[in-house]
Computed example of a mutant assay.
Amino acid sequence: MSKIDPAKTLPLIHHREIVAQSRLFKVERLDLEFSNGATRQFERMAGHNRGAVMIVPLLNDDTMVLIREYAAGTHTYQLGFPKGLIDPGESVLTAANRELQEEAGFGAKELHEIHTVSMAPTFFNSDMTIVMARDLYPQSLPGDEPEPLEVVKWPLSEADKLLAREDFIEARCVAALFLAQKWLKEQ
């Protein structure tokens, strides 16, 4: 295994420019110079990185709460964990409990940050914190979804069957499932 150099010098950013923009996204071009003198132009999604949360809710030791919602990128309905952006001024755990109430109709008395993942760090500045939610109680808040989300209860003991489904394919959900299983074993 090779060593990681923690003192590696970051490339210099000589110029930044927004080269495309939509209602939701900005594409930023960076003119970079690396420590060895090489120069490159990179494009990335520009953002403010408010952060996001994904919640793995447990009704009991063997029952997860999932939601089924429309995924515009694949034009399908996908099964996954509740998730959403952290609002300005919110903590990770406050955002997780709010999203859980908005999307799944449950609040949680017990919340734990278990890991932070990034979707594609080469192109996005977007972190998502995975949160375990336990000791759930019925509690709903209005959300921003265009239609009611279907709530699906799934046995944790049947995680392999969940992974085999064609509608449970989001990489962050798969990672959250494995991270949750690891976290639960360590408790």
Score class of each variant (00 low, 15 high):
Lys153Ile: 07
Val19His: 00
Ser157Gln: 10
Phe178Asp: 15
Leu141Cys: 02
Gly89Lys: 04
Val152Tyr: 07
Trp183Glu: 12
Leu177Asn: 05
Ala171Thr: 15
Ala108Asp: 03
Thr63Asn: 03
Leu141Asn: 02
Pro148Phe: 01
Leu32Pro: 01
Ala71Leu: 11
His15Ser: 05
Thr94Ile: 06
Ala180Lys: 03
Leu10Arg: 04
Phe106Tyr: 15
Gln139Tyr: 12
Lys182Gln: 15
Ile67Ser: 06
Lys153Cys: 14
Leu162Trp: 13
Thr122Lys: 13
Val131Ser: 00
Asn36Met: 04
Leu100Asn: 00
Ala20Cys: 02
Gly37Met: 08
Asp31Thr: 13
Glu166Gly: 15
Cys173Phe: 11
Pro138Ser: 05
Lys182Met: 13
Ala133Asp: 04
Asp87Gln: 15
Pro138Asn: 01
Ala180Pro: 01
Phe178Ser: 12
Gly47Trp: 10
Ser118Cys: 11
Ala176Arg: 00
Ala164Val: 07
Pro155Gln: 05
Gln21Val: 09
Pro146Asn: 06
Gln21Lys: 14
Leu10Thr: 05
Leu12Val: 13
Leu163Pro: 03
Arg29Val: 00
Gln101Ala: 12
Pro121Val: 06
Val174Ala: 04
Gly47Met: 04
Ile130Lys: 00
Leu141Gly: 01
Leu32Gln: 08
Asp160Ser: 13
Arg134Trp: 07
Gly47Asn: 06
Tyr70Pro: 00
Ala52Pro: 02
Asp167Val: 12
Glu90Ala: 07
Ser22Cys: 04
Ala175Ser: 13
Tyr70Arg: 09
Trp183Gln: 11
Leu85Trp: 11
Asp167Asn: 14
Thr74Ser: 13
Lys83Glu: 15
Leu24Arg: 14
Asn49Glu: 08
Ile169Met: 13
Lys8Ser: 12
Ala52Lys: 07
Val117Ser: 11
Glu99Gln: 11
Phe168Pro: 05
Met54Thr: 14
Pro121Tyr: 08
Ser126Ile: 08
Arg40Ser: 12
Asp62Trp: 08
Glu166Gln: 14
Gly89Asn: 06
Asp87Arg: 15
Gln41Asp: 08
Ala120His: 12
Met54Asp: 07
Thr39Cys: 11
Asn97His: 05
Pro11Glu: 04
Ala20Asn: 08
Gly37Asp: 07
Met45Thr: 08
Leu66Cys: 03
Glu113Ala: 10
Cys173Asn: 14
Thr116Met: 08
Glu43Thr: 14
Leu12Tyr: 09
Gln21Gly: 03
Ser126His: 15
Glu158Pro: 05
Glu186Met: 07
Trp154Gln: 05
Leu66Ile: 02
Ala104Gly: 03
Val131His: 00
Arg172Met: 14
Thr74Ala: 06
Ala175Gly: 03
Ala7Tyr: 13
Leu59Cys: 04
Ala120Phe: 12
Thr74Ile: 13
Arg68Val: 09
Ile18Ala: 02
Ala96Cys: 01
Gly89Ala: 03
Ser22Arg: 02
Pro146Trp: 03
Arg23Pro: 00
